[in-house]
Design a protein around this nucleic acid. Sequence first.
DNA 1: TTGTAAGCGTTATCAA
DNA 2: TTGATAACGCTTACAA
Lengths: 351, 351
Amino acid sequence: MEGWSSTHVSSRPPHRQNTRPTMRDVAERAGVALVTVSRVVNGVGTVREETAERVMAAINAIGYQRNELARSLRPGQNSMTIGLLLGDLTNPFYASLAKAAVEVANRAGYAVLLSTADEDPEVERRAVGELIGRRVAGLIIVPDQGDHAFLNEINGHDHVPIVFVDRPATGAEADVVLVDNEDGGRKATQHLIDQGHRRIAILGAPSYYSTGRRLRGYRKALRRSGITPDSNLVVTLRRGTTEEASAATHTLLTSADPPTAVFSTTGFLTEGVLRACRQLQTSVAIVGFDDFKLADMLPTPVTVVTSDTEELGRHAARLLLDRIDGDDAPSRRTVLPVQLIARGTGEIGTQ
Amino acid sequence: MEGWSSTHVSSRPPHRQNTRPTMRDVAERAGVALVTVSRVVNGVGTVREETAERVMAAINAIGYQRNELARSLRPGQNSMTIGLLLGDLTNPFYASLAKAAVEVANRAGYAVLLSTADEDPEVERRAVGELIGRRVAGLIIVPDQGDHAFLNEINGHDHVPIVFVDRPATGAEADVVLVDNEDGGRKATQHLIDQGHRRIAILGAPSYYSTGRRLRGYRKALRRSGITPDSNLVVTLRRGTTEEASAATHTLLTSADPPTAVFSTTGFLTEGVLRACRQLQTSVAIVGFDDFKLADMLPTPVTVVTSDTEELGRHAARLLLDRIDGDDAPSRRTVLPVQLIARGTGEIGTQ
DNA sequence: TTGTAAGCGTTATCAA
DNA sequence: TTGATAACGCTTACAA
């Protein structure tokens, strides 16, 4: 009853849904076998010049384009797609990270599946699942807090390399690309000390990795200068929003024994500090972690410590591509340098 | 010679490369047929409670996860992936667009392939090819200048819906989601007129769609107020960078008959105008198109006309998903409203 | 309720 | 140099 094996079926079965032309269509049109088309498309094996031309003509005529999904189904092929999992793109930090990573990946022929897991471990877990389900060849992740042990299976047993960016993931062992948070904290604080400040407050987001390291740098700088840390000047916010930072600054500056300087450890927080100052019509010395646009255009240009965020993304992508290409050396930890840009707010002296 | 049809092959062929477990692995472990696993995973057909539990147990035991790539190879299935093609993510406009689109898509179960084609038509064309090769179910594109007729085939014959954002594509017919550029231009200019200005310059990026419409609004507002347009006050930059805008502003303000107000038609340009003013230690009245962070914190807070960029992205994504779901009504053009936010620079009077 | 078989578009293997 | 065939992991008919 099956006619298909004896009769040469020249046209598509009627129930066909996917409408894009396939190698079979090209082959029919060029009057060659399907496998010959494959050889031409991939430039492997041997095909007579004239045959190849006929195939190419057919390809152009019907607008054939290789189906990468089918291709990656074959053993030994990867999907030529990586996954990128990070926070809110509205945060310029994540935006430049993404920009740079996409650039490197695309240039190497990889597509990028972008997913944003906004600080929610459960969302993050689901997102990773979606990406793995699409068989990404590797993952770049800015990990949230919370246990990431579930990634070890992916990275290890499943051989899907993972690179963490900006902070390591607790419970998971993989490559990490970081900025030198501790040195940044130290540099920011030291700069304020150099301007004569001794009562220096630090504003931190919740106990993320970065905040902890920046705080450590802050403490080291104080200790080195013989300044006794005042725990009233160490403020850890609950969520790390601009509004919280603004409120906290308000409290600090209107307290009995206010600080003369503030080290704010993220871009959002710096904005909050600035807004509070404006509202109070005061100014304190400020150094922020992370540079931001127009920082130099504000009434008092803002002094910051910063690192090259795009380089962070580029490096992560390059590292991941190396891993995908088979580099199986032990996990690497890269730390990018941080530099201070003095613009004004950090140079406001004590009275 | 083929033993495979008579002998029950219970273990994997040795040359296996992809190491993730498959339905076959689950089936073996649960002692059922592969198709039963499929039924359980997809919740279709009928499976006895007890059998389903055995299958689920096996799935959890070996950490099975459905291969979406293989799945989407079947007729009538789509890849559950859309493509997003836009400009430099460092531009907050694109970043919010992407954020919103990704959010909507993910929530609907779609993954997003992100590609950035930086104002280069050839790069854009290649990027579209890569996305189509991965069989995206739809495309959201912020089109560059240049002919986009090649997209008609994709949108029409191949049934891959396309939604253009921020500007229509020349030569291609598809849904478009825009902001009301002309009204924005009109509102910005009218606001300056209302403050008493009559010599109002306009700074535009190259003749992109948006700039043209904003310019038209500018002209209409002038005409309506009986102001004769001065062509010396209409400046079209060659690339639209901040630096160019700064230089152009410098030229304008130091000319024999300088304008008393400037309408800058993009965020980058507005920054350039502000920098030039600072450098010259002058101030002119300014209204910018597109809001930006810290606009309200600058020495003179910046007046802008703006629309809801995230809504732009959300709307585009929702429209695309509708199309993917089969909505085949004629192409739609959505225009989002623009509002003016008066902050200071627009309210600087004449002398 | 469960299973067999065919096929989605591609590439690797082997034979002609 | 070219082609027939199996297989990648999955779902949809159809059969038991």
